[in-house]
């Protein structure tokens, strides 16, 4: 066994000159905080340290995701389904009211609406809850790492992984379709990828909120699947049923629709593909009449709120809850 006394002491990166050796005499009375920890308490140093921690945690999360099976399976499944949908969309040309849309893009839209929220919600739901279950969370928080740094780092790492998954899936679709038929409009796909990234950012934030609340990873994933069902199916069906049963006014219907990030994604994608929005019927016409050119701003604001609010709530809950 190597003798500890003989080992060269490790050097801290940001030690001050007078404390450049950590082998200073610890048996004396407590030194100044800076000397004790080699820490500069200035705002700039704190910001730099926070940024470094977020980057470290995000890097770890990204590497974990890239190594994990879920990332590979999600990417392959997304690519496979995307290719299948693209072939079917292009094969069943015309006669479906899709005139004016990039057919491939319109076909992929529905796939994204189903798959991306599910992937993002479950990935987010696993992140903190699984660390807690494994007993790693208190250990991580026992390091010089603020809770918000850990949460934000994990969120950003997962977001980059998800964006990579989307880019590979949709990019693969675009490449194959362009090679096969030359009918794919690359710009409509690029737009769809960008909107999908915003959607995944929002759903991931919601998943992370579930993750900090749930004690167990299995519960977190279960709740996130329930939320997915709620957002994908129940709200759509609820809006239809509500419109019929309560004879909702068109403005109420529109407000209820844009409260759902999935609907916002759909509306925004469609409005960017077909500026008339008449495919959405009266609600689309009402939106165009009322907001006109301001519509993208509304959509962007709603999606931004769906990113910020769940993440903010997750941070509040995470900072108050015991990590054990």
């Amino acid at each position: 066994m190597t003798a500890i006394h003989s080992a060269t002491p490790l050097r801290e990166i940001d030690v001050t000159d007078k404390d450049s050796s950590p082998a200073h005499d610890r048996s004396t009375a407590p030194a100044s905080p800076a000397a004790l920890g080699g820490m500069d308490g200035s705002a700039a140093a704190r910001a730099s340290s926070a940024f470094a921690n977020v980057r470290t945690v995000a890097g770890r999360e990204l590497r974990d995701a890239l190594r994990s099976r879920w990332f590979l399976l999600d990417t392959l499944a997304f690519l496979g389904l995307g290719l299948a949908v693209s072939f079917v969309s292009s094969a069943s040309a015309g006669g479906l009211g899709l005139a004016g849309f990039g057919r491939t893009t319109a076909g992929l839209l529905n796939l994204i609406l189903l798959v991306v929220p599910l992937m993002s919600l479950t990935a987010g739901a696993g992140t903190i809850a699984s660390e807690r279950e494994r007993g790693m969370l208190p250990y991580l928080l026992a390091q010089p790492l603020a809770r918000w740094e850990l949460l934000l780092g994990k969120y950003l790492g997962l977001l980059v992984a998800m964006i990579g998954c989307l880019a590979m899936g949709l990019g693969g679709c675009a490449a194959v379709m362009a090679w096969r038929s030359g009918t794919t409009d690359p710009w409509s796909l690029v737009h769809l990828v960008l909107l999908s990234m915003m959607l995944t950012a929002a759903m991931l934030g919601l998943g992370v909120l579930v993750s900090v609340i749930a004690r167990r990873a299995s519960v977190a994933v279960g709740v996130s699947v329930f939320l997915w069902l709620l957002l994908v199916f129940v709200t759509d069906l609820g809006l239809m049923a509500g419109t019929l049963a309560f004879k909702l006014r068109i403005e109420t219907l529109f407000v209820l629709a844009v409260a759902n990030p999935l609907q916002v994604f759909k509306l925004w994608s469609l409005s960017s593909l077909d500026a008339s929005l008449d495919v959405l019927g009266p609600a689309g016409l009402y939106a165009l009449d009322t907001l006109g050119a301001g519509l993208p701003w509304l959509f962007a604001s709603v999606l931004a709120a769906w990113v910020i609010l769940p993440l903010g709530a997750a941070l509040v809950v995470f900072s108050r809850r015991s990590p054990t």
């Binding site: 004790l36 920890g37 494994r134 007993g135 790693m136 250990y139 390091q143 010089p144 603020a146």
Partner: peptide, 15 residues
């Protein structure tokens, strides 16, 4: 965060 920079921690078991 600054106090934890002064501390090394070993738990009973680590995951």
């Amino acid at each position: 965060k600054r106090t934890r920079r002064l501390v090394g921690y070993v738990p009973q078991e680590i995951g």
